[in-house]
């Protein structure tokens, strides 16, 4: 039977853990609200951008002069996987789920005989993929110092990716991140960013014919790189919200588990204490009877 002092110490330590997880949960909740607001705020831009892009892509896409970012290089031998994860852990399966999705994709491509290159954003993803796919890693973007994700961060990543594309380092780029549904549900998602794919809203042909200034091709060439940055930006924001959501529910679970553990330990402690008292009484009584 564990002695009373040990039990008391354990209860105290679990109580401290509970305080920490509770605090982390509340911090995550506050950050989640901010992350959601940021995601919300970026939506008008992204929506309009994609609307214009898809109508442009539809009219220029078919021609031979279409930019490579849209039509692709004509091959799909080398794949770049852009894996976006968090910088911090303690957020449930958030990082692991993204890494798992990316790993499965990478292994499928390797099995098909394609070349795979991996660019990671966020420390956790890099650490998880390093073990078995370390030799495919071509770079890492560190966002540890970044307090609040800005468009600039996305732009930097996009510039890196686009430079690699211009140098012919890869043919297809796919981005992995987690889509935020709600606090308990985040869906790891794969999105092809190069060559760009735009959802063609069929049947709703553009009702207005636009004049383009300068030419359609020039605008498209100007906008496609921005499109990459925009999709990376919205993925980063989704990821940010997902991370906080995942952390919030993970910490909620941890707090609850700690609470249960404290209850169990307290019962054990009380029983032991009662046993000690009973023992002492028996000793006293039997001592008195012997006289």
């Amino acid at each position: 039977m564990p002695n009373l002092k040990d039990l008391k110490n354990r209860i105290a330590s679990v109580k401290n853990t509970r305080k920490i997880t509770k605090a982390m949960q509340m911090v995550a909740a506050a950050k989640l609200r901010r992350a959601q607001e940021a995601a919300e705020a970026s939506r008008p831009y992204t929506e309009r951008f994609n609307a214009v892009m898809s109508s442009l892509a539809a009219s220029v896409g078919g021609s031979d002069t279409a930019p490579k970012l849209l039509s692709g290089t004509g091959k799909d031998d080398v794949h770049l996987l852009l894996v976006l994860t968090a910088e911090k852990g303690l957020c449930g399966g958030f990082n692991a789920n993204i890494a798992k999705k990316a790993r499965a994709h990478a292994q499928k491509l390797i099995a098909e005989g394609k070349e795979v290159k991996i660019l990671t954003v966020g420390k956790k993803g890099r650490d998880q993929l390093k073990r078995d796919l370390g030799k495919h890693m071509v770079g890492h973007v560190d966002l540890t110092e970044v307090k609040r994700i800005g468009y600039v961060n996305a732009q930097d990543i996009a510039v890196d990716v686009l430079n690699r594309f211009d140098e012919g380092e890869f043919d297809v780029a796919t981005m992995f991140y987690s889509e935020f549904v709600n606090v308990v549900t985040q869906i790891p998602t794969a999105l092809q960013i190069i060559p760009a794919k735009f959802e063609q809203s069929e049947g709703t042909a553009p009702d207005v014919l636009f004049d383009y200034e300068p030419s359609e091709e020039a605008i498209l060439a100007d906008l496609l790189p921005r499109g990459v940055a925009t999709s990376i930006f919205s993925a980063l924001l989704e990821n940010g919200a997902s991370e906080q959501g995942a952390r919030m529910s993970a910490m909620d679970n941890a707090t609850r588990n700690a609470g249960e553990m404290i209850d169990d330990l307290t019962i054990e402690y009380n029983r032991s204490r009662q046993a000690v008292i009973t023992n002492e009484l028996i000793e006293i009584i039997s001592g008195a009877e012997a006289l």
Binding site: V52, L56, F210, D211, Y212, E213, P214, I219, D222
Partner: peptide
Amino acid sequence: DGELTAMPGHSATITT
């Protein structure tokens, strides 16, 4: 390509 001023009824245009 230069400054342009849009007023209500401007023809549909996309410009960088």
